[in-house]
């Protein structure tokens, strides 16, 4: 099965709402897209439609959190991080446990183009002290990550996709915040992926296998705190790390990994993603091929990286 992580989020939130009356949800005229509508329909008294006013929504969420509620504030990733200083001040600095939900991550949204694509959100959210930053790769992981956010008494950010993501994890999977997951083993290099690029990286691993390159593939669902131990172990055991994400390479998951590599066991790192560029409109699959975020592109880039001296 394949499901958009925004849909898995909406379904989970509607379930959690039954067990936990403190959960409240806010949206800014995008509830049909973020899927917070599934909660809104079930619990209209605990849903706040804020209109096209994201800054105000974030502030209201902070107030709700400081008064003991568990708010989930939802919009497209780009519009939320557009209200960065409000998040910095009213949420993070004020230590208000707001759960920030940014959907429509990356060029994977396709035709709407750059203005609606979250492409810098990981970098921005990662820079806020104490912010937990998550990006699940499939339905099951999304459910568990959202459940974690509801239970965790702190502020956090989750990045979700518009497009469907295939199932990666087995039914007995247990999400552990801050712990990367080795999905395939290998010793020639490690490919670290997150969210939508995890499935592509796994496929790329198979393509590389045929070329005699054995890639370890790791799912980095928690971008912050980054799993330093696992990153160090992969650096030691495979000697090279290739990161891939549907995000600008500046400041995203790849940067978090590169920082950890430098500080633990320096080895060559190649960050792959949007190479300091804005996005554009197009069919999502065509865009993944153009920006080499699909399995073929990742395999091509990773192979070139391995062959470099």
């Amino acid at each position: 099965m394949a499901k958009a992580s925004r849909l898995a989020f909406g379904e989970t939130l509607a379930e959690l709402g039954e067990k936990d009356e403190k959960i409240v949800v806010l949206d800014a005229d995008l509830s049909k897209s973020t899927m917070s509508i599934l909660f809104a329909k079930k619990f209209p008294d605990r849903f706040f439609e804020c209109g096209i006013a994201e800054s105000n929504m974030v502030g209201i969420a902070a107030g709700l959190a400081l008064a003991g509620k568990k708010p989930f504030a939802c919009s497209f990733a780009c519009f939320l991080t557009g209200r960065y200083e409000t998040i910095r001040m009213s949420v993070a600095y004020s230590n208000a446990p707001v759960r920030i939900v940014g959907t429509h991550a990356g060029i994977g949204i396709g035709e709407d183009g750059n203005s609606q694509m979250g492409l810098e959100d990981l970098a921005l959210m990662r820079a806020l002290p104490g912010m937990i930053v998550l990006q699940p790769c499939d339905e099951l992981e999304t459910k568990q990550a959202v459940t974690f956010m509801a239970e965790h008494n702190g502020y956090s950010y989750i990045r979700l996709t518009r497009q469907k993501l295939p199932d990666i994890n087995s039914p007995d999977y247990r999400f552990q915040v801050g712990k990367g997951v080795v999905l395939a083993d290998g010793k020639d290099l490690t490919i670290m992926a997150t969210g939508s690029t995890v499935a592509e990286a796994l496929e790329a691993g198979k393509v590389l296998q045929e070329k005699g390159i054995r890639a370890r593939v790791v799912n980095i669902h928690t971008i912050k705190p980054i799993d330093k131990d696992l990153v160090a172990r992969c650096a030691k055991e495979t000697g090279r790390i290739f990161t891939v994400e549907d995000h600008n390479i500046m400041g995203g998951m790849g940067s978090a990994v590169a920082e950890a590599v430098c500080e633990t066991h320096p080895v060559p790192v190649r960050r792959w993603g949007l190479l300091d560029k804005f996005g554009e409109s197009g069919d999502p699959e065509e865009l993944y091929a153009k920006y080499e975020l699909d399995a073929a592109g990742i395999a091509r880039q990773a192979a070139a990286f391995v062959q470099e001296k």
């Binding site: 750059n114 409109s281 197009g282």
Partner: peptide
């Protein structure tokens, strides 16, 4: 809205 078109989904 097609890949490569100057007619982006939003003004560029």
């Amino acid at each position: 809205r097609k890949t490569g078109s100057p007619l982006q989904g939003h003004p560029d």
